[in-house]
Simulated assay, not measured.
Amino acid sequence: MPFLAPESGGRPGTEPGSVDYRFARRQLLHRVRSGELTQADVCDAQHELLRVGRNCAQRARHDCPVCGEHELRLARFVFGPRMPAGGRVVASRSELLKLAARTSGPGLRCYTVEVCLSCRWNHLLDITPVGGRAGDA
C-alpha cells in the first residue's frame, strides 16, 4: 500500500528535510510535571552548552518550561562537510545566511537547542537544512 502525500504542506516555515522535536519535548515535560522524572534528571546541560547560551545565543521569547525563569536561550550549531567536529556556533540569522552562501553544495544542518542558564534545562528543538536542497544531501 503506497503512502499518500499529505494534503497540507506541513507546518508553516519549515523546510523540506527538517526535523521538529517539539512532541518529544512535550512528552518529556509531561513526565517531569507528573513526577515520573525529577528536575535533576532533565536539567543537565554541559558547561560548554551553558557558555554558548550565555555568550552566543538569542534570548527565547518564553520562560523556561522547567523553572519558570526568563533565562532561556536558543543556541544554534551548524554541522556538515568542512565544519569542525563540534560544529560551528551561529549567533544570528545573518551569520547563518552568510555561512550558507559561503559553503558550496548541500549537507549543512542547523541544530537549534534551547538551554536555560538558571536550571540547566536543555532540549534539541529542531534540525534544519542550511543552503542547497535537503534531497541533495
Score class of each variant (00 low, 15 high):
Q58N: 08
D20F: 14
H62Q: 10
L49N: 01
Y21D: 07
L96F: 02
E95G: 13
L117I: 05
L108Q: 05
E15D: 12
F77V: 02
G80W: 03
A91E: 12
E69F: 11
L29A: 05
P16Y: 08
L72H: 00
R93N: 15
W121A: 06
Y111K: 07
L74M: 07
T103A: 09
A75V: 08
Y111D: 00
A60L: 07
L28Q: 01
L125R: 15
V78T: 00
V115I: 10
R109A: 13
N55D: 15
G87H: 00
R59H: 10
N55Y: 12
G53I: 03
E71K: 11
S18F: 04
D126H: 15
Y111T: 03
L108V: 04
H70T: 09
P84G: 02
Q27N: 12
N122T: 12
V32N: 01
W121H: 13
R59M: 08
P12G: 03
A24W: 08
G35F: 00
G105C: 01
E95R: 14
A100V: 01
C67G: 04
Q27T: 15
A91I: 02
E95P: 01
P16G: 02
A101M: 08
L99P: 04
R76M: 06
F79E: 02
G80Q: 06
C64M: 04
H30L: 13
C110A: 15
D41H: 09
Q27R: 14
R93K: 12
R51S: 14
G107N: 08
L117R: 05
F23D: 13
D63L: 09
L29P: 00
L117N: 05
G53V: 02
R88Q: 11
Q58A: 12
P65I: 02
P12V: 00
P16M: 07
G105D: 08
L96R: 07
R93Y: 12
F23C: 10
H47M: 15
T38S: 13
L72A: 02
S118I: 04
A57M: 03
G105F: 03
V52W: 03
